[in-house]
Protein backbone atom coordinates (compact mmCIF):
# COMPACT_ATOMS: atom_id res chain seq x y z
CA UNK A 1 0.00 0.00 0.00
CA UNK A 2 1.38 3.36 -0.96
CA UNK A 3 -0.17 6.37 0.72
CA UNK A 4 -0.36 9.05 -1.91
CA UNK A 5 -1.00 12.09 0.27
CA UNK A 6 -0.29 13.15 3.83
CA UNK A 7 -3.98 13.60 4.61
CA UNK A 8 -7.04 11.55 3.92
CA UNK A 9 -9.90 13.11 1.96
CA UNK A 10 -12.71 14.58 4.05
CA UNK A 11 -15.93 12.65 3.91
CA UNK A 12 -18.39 15.50 3.96
CA UNK A 13 -19.76 18.08 6.34
CA UNK A 14 -19.23 16.01 9.48
CA UNK A 15 -15.49 15.75 8.90
CA UNK A 16 -15.23 19.46 8.19
CA UNK A 17 -17.19 20.26 11.35
CA UNK A 18 -14.94 17.95 13.31
CA UNK A 19 -12.00 19.85 11.83
CA UNK A 20 -13.50 23.16 12.91
CA UNK A 21 -14.14 21.91 16.43
CA UNK A 22 -10.62 20.50 16.59
CA UNK A 23 -9.08 23.84 15.66
CA UNK A 24 -11.43 25.80 17.89
CA UNK A 25 -12.54 23.73 20.86
CA UNK A 26 -14.28 26.81 22.22
CA UNK A 27 -16.97 26.69 19.55
CA UNK A 28 -17.79 23.12 20.40
CA UNK A 29 -17.98 23.92 24.08
CA UNK A 30 -20.24 26.87 23.39
CA UNK A 31 -22.60 24.78 21.29
CA UNK A 32 -22.66 22.17 24.00
CA UNK A 33 -23.40 24.63 26.77
CA UNK A 34 -25.78 26.93 24.96
CA UNK A 35 -29.04 25.03 25.62
CA UNK A 36 -28.44 24.47 29.33
CA UNK A 37 -27.18 28.04 29.75
CA UNK A 38 -30.27 29.39 28.04
CA UNK A 39 -32.42 27.20 30.21
CA UNK A 40 -30.67 28.29 33.38
CA UNK A 41 -30.47 31.92 32.42
CA UNK A 42 -33.89 32.54 31.01
CA UNK A 43 -36.21 30.04 32.63
CA UNK A 44 -34.51 29.54 35.94
CA UNK A 45 -32.98 32.88 36.81
CA UNK A 46 -35.70 34.69 34.91
CA UNK A 47 -38.46 33.24 37.03
CA UNK A 48 -36.42 33.93 40.13
CA UNK A 49 -36.08 37.56 39.15
CA UNK A 50 -39.78 37.77 38.37
CA UNK A 51 -40.41 36.45 41.85
CA UNK A 52 -38.11 39.02 43.35
CA UNK A 53 -39.83 41.78 41.41
CA UNK A 54 -43.29 40.61 42.52
CA UNK A 55 -42.23 40.84 46.13
CA UNK A 56 -41.63 44.56 45.70
CA UNK A 57 -45.15 45.10 44.47
CA UNK A 58 -47.98 45.39 46.91
CA UNK A 59 -51.59 44.43 47.03
CA UNK A 60 -54.31 47.01 47.14
CA UNK A 61 -56.21 46.16 50.26
CA UNK A 62 -59.34 47.68 48.86
CA UNK A 63 -59.63 45.99 45.48
CA UNK A 64 -57.30 43.06 46.00
CA UNK A 65 -55.49 44.02 42.82
CA UNK A 66 -51.70 43.89 42.61
CA UNK A 67 -50.29 47.40 42.42
CA UNK A 68 -47.26 47.33 40.16
CA UNK A 69 -45.25 50.01 41.86
CA UNK A 70 -42.05 49.23 43.69
CA UNK A 71 -42.51 49.42 47.43
CA UNK A 72 -41.24 47.82 50.60
CA UNK A 73 -44.74 47.66 52.05
CA UNK A 74 -45.05 43.92 51.40
CA UNK A 75 -41.84 43.21 53.26
CA UNK A 76 -43.22 45.31 56.09
CA UNK A 77 -46.23 43.00 56.14
CA UNK A 78 -43.84 40.09 56.41
CA UNK A 79 -42.81 41.43 59.80
CA UNK A 80 -46.31 41.32 61.26
CA UNK A 81 -46.31 39.07 64.29
CA UNK A 82 -48.34 36.25 62.73
CA UNK A 83 -46.09 36.23 59.66
CA UNK A 84 -42.96 36.44 61.74
CA UNK A 85 -44.28 33.43 63.66
CA UNK A 86 -44.43 31.51 60.41
CA UNK A 87 -40.86 32.43 59.49
CA UNK A 88 -39.50 31.52 62.91
CA UNK A 89 -41.51 28.32 63.09
CA UNK A 90 -40.23 27.24 59.69
CA UNK A 91 -36.60 28.11 60.33
CA UNK A 92 -36.60 26.38 63.73
CA UNK A 93 -38.19 23.31 62.19
CA UNK A 94 -35.72 23.30 59.30
CA UNK A 95 -32.79 23.64 61.69
CA UNK A 96 -34.07 20.87 63.95
CA UNK A 97 -34.72 18.59 61.00
CA UNK A 98 -31.25 19.27 59.62
CA UNK A 99 -29.55 18.53 62.93
CA UNK A 100 -31.52 15.36 63.44
CA UNK A 101 -30.85 14.21 59.88
CA UNK A 102 -27.14 14.88 60.34
CA UNK A 103 -27.04 12.99 63.62
CA UNK A 104 -28.90 9.99 62.21
CA UNK A 105 -27.19 10.03 58.82
CA UNK A 106 -23.64 10.19 60.09
CA UNK A 107 -23.31 6.70 61.54
CA UNK A 108 -25.07 5.22 58.52
CA UNK A 109 -22.95 7.15 56.05
CA UNK A 110 -19.81 6.38 58.03
CA UNK A 111 -20.56 2.69 58.05
CA UNK A 112 -21.31 2.72 54.33
CA UNK A 113 -18.19 4.68 53.46
CA UNK A 114 -15.75 2.85 55.69
CA UNK A 115 -16.92 -0.69 56.26
CA UNK A 116 -19.59 -1.72 53.78
CA UNK A 117 -18.16 -3.78 50.96
CA UNK A 118 -19.67 -5.54 47.97
CA UNK A 119 -23.09 -6.87 48.86
CA UNK A 120 -23.54 -4.69 51.88
CA UNK A 121 -22.76 -1.62 49.87
CA UNK A 122 -25.51 -2.56 47.42
CA UNK A 123 -27.85 -3.15 50.34
CA UNK A 124 -26.94 0.26 51.69
CA UNK A 125 -27.65 2.06 48.44
CA UNK A 126 -30.87 0.16 48.00
CA UNK A 127 -31.94 0.88 51.55
CA UNK A 128 -31.24 4.57 51.21
CA UNK A 129 -32.67 5.00 47.74
CA UNK A 130 -35.69 2.75 48.04
CA UNK A 131 -37.84 5.25 49.93
CA UNK A 132 -37.06 7.79 47.20
CA UNK A 133 -38.66 5.59 44.57
CA UNK A 134 -42.10 5.62 46.10
CA UNK A 135 -44.30 8.66 45.81
CA UNK A 136 -43.69 11.38 48.30
CA UNK A 137 -47.43 11.78 48.93
CA UNK A 138 -47.87 8.08 49.55
CA UNK A 139 -45.12 8.21 52.15
CA UNK A 140 -46.58 11.20 53.90
CA UNK A 141 -50.08 9.72 54.01
CA UNK A 142 -48.61 6.47 55.25
CA UNK A 143 -46.94 8.38 58.05
CA UNK A 144 -50.21 10.05 58.90
CA UNK A 145 -51.63 6.60 59.51
CA UNK A 146 -48.56 5.39 61.37
CA UNK A 147 -48.66 8.36 63.71
CA UNK A 148 -52.44 8.60 64.09
CA UNK A 149 -54.01 8.37 67.52
CA UNK A 150 -55.41 5.00 66.55
CA UNK A 151 -52.44 4.27 64.31
CA UNK A 152 -49.70 1.68 64.14
CA UNK A 153 -47.28 3.40 66.45
CA UNK A 154 -49.67 3.91 69.33
CA UNK A 155 -50.95 0.36 68.83
CA UNK A 156 -47.40 -0.94 69.08
CA UNK A 157 -46.77 1.25 72.11
CA UNK A 158 -49.91 -0.09 73.75
CA UNK A 159 -48.94 -3.65 72.99
CA UNK A 160 -45.49 -3.21 74.47
CA UNK A 161 -46.57 -1.06 77.38
CA UNK A 162 -44.53 1.89 76.23
CA UNK A 163 -47.41 4.30 75.65
CA UNK A 164 -46.09 6.42 78.48
CA UNK A 165 -43.18 7.46 76.27
CA UNK A 166 -45.48 8.78 73.55
CA UNK A 167 -47.84 10.29 76.10
CA UNK A 168 -44.93 11.97 77.82
CA UNK A 169 -43.67 13.43 74.57
CA UNK A 170 -47.13 14.60 73.58
CA UNK A 171 -47.60 16.26 76.95
CA UNK A 172 -44.66 18.54 76.23
CA UNK A 173 -45.61 22.11 75.51
CA UNK A 174 -45.10 23.54 72.01
CA UNK A 175 -44.16 20.24 70.33
CA UNK A 176 -46.95 18.10 71.77
CA UNK A 177 -50.60 17.68 70.86
CA UNK A 178 -53.38 15.13 71.19
CA UNK A 179 -51.61 12.66 68.94
CA UNK A 180 -48.30 12.37 67.10
CA UNK A 181 -50.05 12.91 63.80
CA UNK A 182 -51.36 16.29 64.89
CA UNK A 183 -48.27 17.45 66.75
CA UNK A 184 -45.26 19.46 65.58
CA UNK A 185 -43.25 16.49 66.82
CA UNK A 186 -44.98 14.34 64.22
CA UNK A 187 -44.29 16.90 61.49
CA UNK A 188 -40.66 16.82 62.57
CA UNK A 189 -40.48 13.04 62.43
CA UNK A 190 -41.96 12.89 58.94
CA UNK A 191 -39.63 15.63 57.72
CA UNK A 192 -36.64 13.74 59.09
CA UNK A 193 -37.80 10.54 57.46
CA UNK A 194 -38.49 12.08 54.09
CA UNK A 195 -35.29 14.10 53.78
CA UNK A 196 -32.86 11.68 55.42
CA UNK A 197 -31.56 10.17 52.15
CA UNK A 198 -30.62 13.64 50.97
CA UNK A 199 -28.32 13.90 53.96
CA UNK A 200 -26.90 10.38 53.88
CA UNK A 201 -25.81 10.35 50.25
CA UNK A 202 -23.63 13.48 50.14
CA UNK A 203 -22.29 12.66 53.58
CA UNK A 204 -21.33 9.19 52.47
CA UNK A 205 -19.68 10.58 49.34
CA UNK A 206 -17.67 13.02 51.45
CA UNK A 207 -16.65 10.39 53.97
CA UNK A 208 -15.62 8.06 51.22
CA UNK A 209 -13.23 10.70 49.97
CA UNK A 210 -11.41 10.85 53.31
CA UNK A 211 -8.48 8.46 52.82
CA UNK A 212 -8.06 5.77 55.44
CA UNK A 213 -4.44 6.79 55.78
CA UNK A 214 -5.63 10.16 57.09
CA UNK A 215 -7.38 8.45 59.97
CA UNK A 216 -4.43 6.18 60.58
CA UNK A 217 -2.12 9.17 60.55
CA UNK A 218 -4.24 10.80 63.21
CA UNK A 219 -4.20 7.72 65.40
CA UNK A 220 -0.52 7.28 64.69
CA UNK A 221 0.13 10.78 65.97
CA UNK A 222 -1.58 9.95 69.22
CA UNK A 223 -5.17 11.05 68.67
CA UNK A 224 -8.00 9.13 70.29
CA UNK A 225 -11.02 8.18 68.20
CA UNK A 226 -12.89 11.16 69.52
CA UNK A 227 -10.08 13.52 68.67
CA UNK A 228 -9.76 12.03 65.20
CA UNK A 229 -13.49 12.47 64.70
CA UNK A 230 -13.45 16.10 65.77
CA UNK A 231 -10.25 17.25 64.15
CA UNK A 232 -10.02 15.15 61.02
CA UNK A 233 -13.18 13.32 60.01
CA UNK A 234 -15.65 16.08 60.74
CA UNK A 235 -13.73 18.88 59.00
CA UNK A 236 -13.04 16.69 56.00
CA UNK A 237 -16.61 15.45 55.79
CA UNK A 238 -17.96 18.94 56.37
CA UNK A 239 -18.51 19.79 52.71
CA UNK A 240 -20.69 16.70 52.50
CA UNK A 241 -22.51 17.58 55.69
CA UNK A 242 -23.03 21.10 54.41
CA UNK A 243 -24.24 19.79 51.07
CA UNK A 244 -26.64 17.47 52.86
CA UNK A 245 -27.80 20.18 55.20
CA UNK A 246 -28.47 22.47 52.25
CA UNK A 247 -30.82 19.82 50.94
CA UNK A 248 -32.58 19.08 54.20
CA UNK A 249 -32.71 22.70 55.29
CA UNK A 250 -33.99 24.15 52.06
CA UNK A 251 -36.37 21.28 51.39
CA UNK A 252 -37.90 21.77 54.82
CA UNK A 253 -38.03 25.52 54.34
CA UNK A 254 -40.03 25.14 51.17
CA UNK A 255 -42.24 22.15 51.86
CA UNK A 256 -45.96 22.73 52.18
CA UNK A 257 -47.38 19.23 51.93
CA UNK A 258 -46.08 17.56 55.06
CA UNK A 259 -47.18 20.22 57.57
CA UNK A 260 -50.56 20.23 55.87
CA UNK A 261 -51.09 16.51 56.35
CA UNK A 262 -49.18 15.83 59.55
CA UNK A 263 -49.12 18.51 62.20
CA UNK A 264 -51.29 21.02 63.99
CA UNK A 265 -52.16 23.19 60.97
CA UNK A 266 -49.88 26.01 62.07
CA UNK A 267 -48.51 27.56 58.89
CA UNK A 268 -45.05 27.05 57.46
CA UNK A 269 -43.50 29.25 54.79
CA UNK A 270 -44.46 26.87 52.01
CA UNK A 271 -48.06 26.64 53.18
CA UNK A 272 -48.25 30.40 53.50
CA UNK A 273 -46.94 30.83 49.96
CA UNK A 274 -49.40 28.26 48.69
CA UNK A 275 -52.34 29.89 50.43
CA UNK A 276 -51.36 33.44 49.67
CA UNK A 277 -50.81 32.91 45.96
CA UNK A 278 -53.77 30.61 45.59
CA UNK A 279 -56.67 31.17 47.90
CA UNK A 280 -55.84 34.70 48.88
CA UNK A 281 -54.46 35.96 45.57
CA UNK A 282 -51.79 37.92 47.39
CA UNK A 283 -48.90 37.26 45.01
CA UNK A 284 -46.62 39.99 46.39
CA UNK A 285 -46.75 38.64 49.94
CA UNK A 286 -46.36 35.10 48.63
CA UNK A 287 -43.29 36.25 46.71
CA UNK A 288 -41.90 38.01 49.77
CA UNK A 289 -42.37 34.81 51.77
CA UNK A 290 -40.65 32.87 49.01
CA UNK A 291 -37.68 35.23 49.03
CA UNK A 292 -37.04 34.49 52.70
CA UNK A 293 -35.72 30.91 52.21
CA UNK A 294 -33.45 32.16 49.44
CA UNK A 295 -32.00 34.80 51.73
CA UNK A 296 -31.65 32.33 54.57
CA UNK A 297 -29.79 29.91 52.33
CA UNK A 298 -27.48 32.64 51.09
CA UNK A 299 -26.65 33.65 54.64
CA UNK A 300 -26.21 30.01 55.57
CA UNK A 301 -23.79 29.37 52.73
CA UNK A 302 -21.88 32.51 53.52
CA UNK A 303 -21.53 31.48 57.15
CA UNK A 304 -20.52 27.98 56.15
CA UNK A 305 -17.87 29.36 53.85
CA UNK A 306 -16.58 31.66 56.54
CA UNK A 307 -16.44 28.77 58.97
CA UNK A 308 -14.18 26.99 56.50
CA UNK A 309 -16.68 24.34 55.48
CA UNK A 310 -15.35 24.31 51.94
CA UNK A 311 -11.63 24.46 52.74
CA UNK A 312 -11.25 20.73 52.33
CA UNK A 313 -12.79 20.78 48.86
Amino acid sequence: MTPSTATLPTRGIADRLTGLFWRRPGIFLLLLLLPPLLWLGVIYLGSLLALLLQSFYSIDEFSGMVRQELTLKTYGELLRPQNLDILIRTVVMAAAVTLACAAIAFPIAYYAARFAKGHWKAVFYLGVMLPLWSSYLVKVYAWKLILAKEGILSWAANATGTSFIIDGLLALPVIGSSSLSTSPLGTFMVFVYVWLPYMILPMQAALERVPTSMLEASADLGATRGQTFRTVILPLALPGVIAGSIFTFSLTLGDYIIPQIVGNSANFIGMAVYQLQGTAGNIPLAAAFAVVPILIMLVYLWLAKRAGAFDAL
Binding site: L145, S177, S181, S183, N264
Partner: peptide, 20 residues
Protein backbone atom coordinates in the same frame (compact mmCIF):
# COMPACT_ATOMS: atom_id res chain seq x y z
CA UNK B 1 -59.19 22.39 71.53
CA UNK B 2 -58.17 21.72 67.95
CA UNK B 3 -55.19 19.56 67.20
CA UNK B 4 -55.56 19.98 63.47
CA UNK B 5 -57.58 22.21 61.14
CA UNK B 6 -59.02 20.69 58.03
CA UNK B 7 -59.24 21.87 54.46
CA UNK B 8 -58.91 18.61 52.59
CA UNK B 9 -62.10 16.56 52.69
CA UNK B 10 -60.27 13.26 52.63
CA UNK B 11 -57.88 14.18 55.39
CA UNK B 12 -60.84 15.12 57.55
CA UNK B 13 -62.49 11.80 56.86
CA UNK B 14 -59.28 10.05 57.80
CA UNK B 15 -59.11 12.02 61.01
CA UNK B 16 -62.62 10.91 61.95
CA UNK B 17 -61.54 7.34 61.31
CA UNK B 18 -58.08 7.24 62.85
CA UNK B 19 -57.48 10.36 64.84
CA UNK B 20 -60.30 10.13 67.36
Amino acid sequence: LTSRYWHDAFIQMDDFKNEG
